[in-house]
Nucleic acid binder design. Structure first.
Lengths: 178, 178
DNA sequence: CCTACCGATCGGTAGG
DNA sequence: CCTACCGATCGGTAGG
């Protein structure tokens, strides 16, 4: 709190005329970020499209929020542990609701044949963890824009590393020789 | 330190007859884990095989170390930030060496056509971040063993979610009709 | 490994 | 928003 006061150019005690406690700052950051993530995915899912397309847009929306303010993102992703009850439980249930949005996209992609995946819960977790690492290395002046990062992430998570197209084209290539 | 002493059944001051400082504990955990990760990947890469196979084994080895002791893994992944110099720099260079092992596998897979990926550095980062999330939810008595987790992770990261085989088989299926 | 401490720092309050 | 302060807790030491 002394550091914060210093950065603001006021005395430490004066902070408490603006907020009730140190934890209030944590709460505000965590729930403001949660709100931003929900607004972003709402916009991403607004139009009716294929699961692949909805997932692409959800990934781009998530990366956009993450990179907008990497410090707030770090608080949202790590410091929520220090929330006291009942905020702690509220946070957890919001996070699960958000993850469920990704699970739902994956589930619909499985049922219509767009996706093949062993476990939708596991898949959602792996996707989100891949996205969430971004905040640790993203630099606003780096060579990749948030949109480019999202494109690369989408490419990796949807298609994987394996050159499957190539392998399958090889498999079928004898059929194509004139 | 008081909590630690309590758990050990001794007085707080007595801890200091075993260690020099609180930070020494952090150092020991961080560098012991680093050593374990290197030993695991050394074993995984010992035999000459395809890049796909080496990556599979490296993933399994990494997940094995992560799940062996999730609390130490959490310290290794997050608390290293509090290391003071020169340990902080040493840690960072070890981590980069480790990541380079994954980049090297990916690079060799690209050059022999096993992998197709836009950026090997980006790919290595995304793989590792997908793996490193495991420590937050893994439970020794859960339904997935470390080996099963590794298999699922490998499947997702190598092949992605998209049902590409199916899509390509559809593309070529007219060629197969008798 | 313990008793007896210490200086520094922490989040926060009273009263203006 | 400030001055003046407080009780609690922190990592750690001296000396046995």
């Amino acid at each position: 709190m002394r550091d914060l006061a210093n950065a603001l150019g006021i005395e430490a005690a004066s902070i408490y005329s603006h907020i009730k406690s140190k934890e209030e700052i944590l709460q505000r950051v965590c729930f403001k970020m949660a709100q931003e993530f929900f607004e972003a995915i709402d916009a991403a899912e607004a139009t009716e499209r294929s699961a692949t397309d909805r997932l692409k847009r959800a990934i781009a929306a998530h990366v956009q929020v993450l990179t907008q303010n990497t410090e707030a993102a770090a608080v949202f992703l790590h410091e929520w542990r220090h929330l006291s009850e009942p905020m702690h439980s509220t946070y957890l249930s919001l996070r699960d609701k958000y993850e469920a949005r990704f699970r739902e996209i994956i589930r619909s992609g499985i049922s219509n044949g767009e996706f093949t995946v062993p476990d939708e819960k596991f898949a959602a977790l792996t996707i989100l963890s891949g996205l969430n690492w971004t905040h640790t290395w993203y630099k606003p002046n780096g060579k990749m824009t948030p949109a480019e990062i999202a494109d690369n992430l989408t490419e990796m998570l949807l298609n994987g590393l394996s050159t499957k197209k190539q392998a399958l084209q090889d498999t079928y290539s004898h059929l194509n020789t004139p």
